[in-house]
């Protein structure tokens, strides 16, 4: 029995991929994750937004009185980008030397500008794949949903032109017709779609009437949304679907695989339990497989996706209806 599967078409030894986060930002902790059985890792993203913020917060205020050095700082954002890219490239190179699992670079971009060309540089540094986290704020109330979707596809098409490593795109669930959009994305040439990104959330402190940071980590039940969408989209998509958000236990992993996911990404659980938790999750999957008599992941993957279900309409039920009125608790 083994846990072999593929991630963006690349063979991996476990379906558990460590998602992009602080744990994947240094070679040291990545080695630890690899030693504990991660199938692959997605590096902490390079944030286009962070570069813009750095430029605006730390560089532009330096512009002296009478704008004397404006010319010096005018294009300094390019210098910052360059520095960030250099660091990232050497992280990729370092990590690639130390681990034998796939290393996926991650770009978090908000625009279809020169960022696209940097993808090539990450490939050259040795990344096995690229994950794109396109950050079109779902809160931009000036843009129509059509414009937003169009820009996703445009960015992807331009990146694919530049690179030969597989590309994954990580999206949020905030699309008007999510299923149709996932389908279109899957035809754009990407090797995988990660469902879903979890946004930083906010909360209110009602005593001080202030906005504060919401929970950083996902909750136990958060896996239900990706579970449903992966089940629904599994056979309607032209690429791998990867489950992300709320995958906290080996049971959650199994559910995602049954729904048809090729693999899962885990972040919050590893923050809470440490990297050795990967071992526990992997052995949990194996225990379940042996109790069920499955030898490979392929033998049960997608068994519970909507297309194979006896009652496919159940996956699309959104209102509680009778279930709710019968519910006695």
């Amino acid at each position: 029995m083994n846990l072999n599967t593929t991630y963006l078409g690349i063979p991996v030894k476990s379906p558990i991929i460590v998602g992009s986060c602080g744990l994947t930002s240094t070679a040291e902790s990545i080695i630890e994750l690899a030693n504990n059985g991660a199938g692959a890792i997605v590096l902490k993203s390079i944030f286009e937004e962070e570069i813009i913020l750095d430029f605006e917060k730390n560089v532009l205020p330096k512009v002296g009185p009478m704008d004397n050095d404006l010319e010096f700082f005018d294009y300094y954002d390019y210098q910052i980008k360059d520095e960030v890219l250099h660091k990232y490239q050497s992280l990729i190179a370092d990590v690639k030397k130390s681990v034998d699992i796939p290393v996926i670079a991650s770009i978090n971009c908000i625009s279809n500008g020169e960022w696209v060309s940097y993808a090539k540089k990450l490939e050259e540094a040795g990344a096995d794949g690229l994950e794109l986290n396109i950050f079109k704020l779902p809160f931009d109330i000036k843009k129509s949903s059509e414009e937003i979707e169009h820009s996703y596809i445009a960015i992807i098409e331009r990146i694919i032109e530049k690179i030969s490593i597989p590309l994954a795109v990580k999206i949020s669930p905030y699309f008007t017709n999510l299923g149709e959009f996932v389908k279109r994305l899957s035809l754009s040439g990407v090797a995988g779609i990660v469902l879903f990104n979890r946004y930083y959330s906010i909360d209110f402190d009602i005593n001080n009437e202030e906005v504060i940071s919401g929970g950083v980590f996902s909750g136990d039940k958060d896996y239900e949304m990706p579970l449903r969408w992966i089940s629904i989209m599994n056979q309607k998509s032209n690429c791998e679907l990867i489950a992300s958000t709320g995958v906290h236990t080996s049971d959650n992993v199994i559910k995602m695989l049954l729904a048809g996911a090729g693999s899962v990404q885990v972040v919050s659980a590893l923050y809470k339990e440490g990297s050795s938790y990967l071992k526990k999750m992997n052995s949990g999957i194996k225990e379940w497989m042996s109790s069920k008599g499955y030898e490979t992941i392929d033998s049960f993957k997608g068994n519970m996706s909507q297309t194979t279900a006896d009652k496919p309409e159940i996956y699309e039920r959104v209102q509680f209806m009778r279930y709710f009125s019968d519910h006695k608790h």
Binding site: F55, N112, H150, A154
Partner: peptide, 22 residues
Amino acid sequence: VQRMELGEPDSSGRRRPVPVEG
């Protein structure tokens, strides 16, 4: 070349150029 439009002002008071898609 890509056309830009001016977004919100940054801390220097100049409006940030944002790329116009397509």
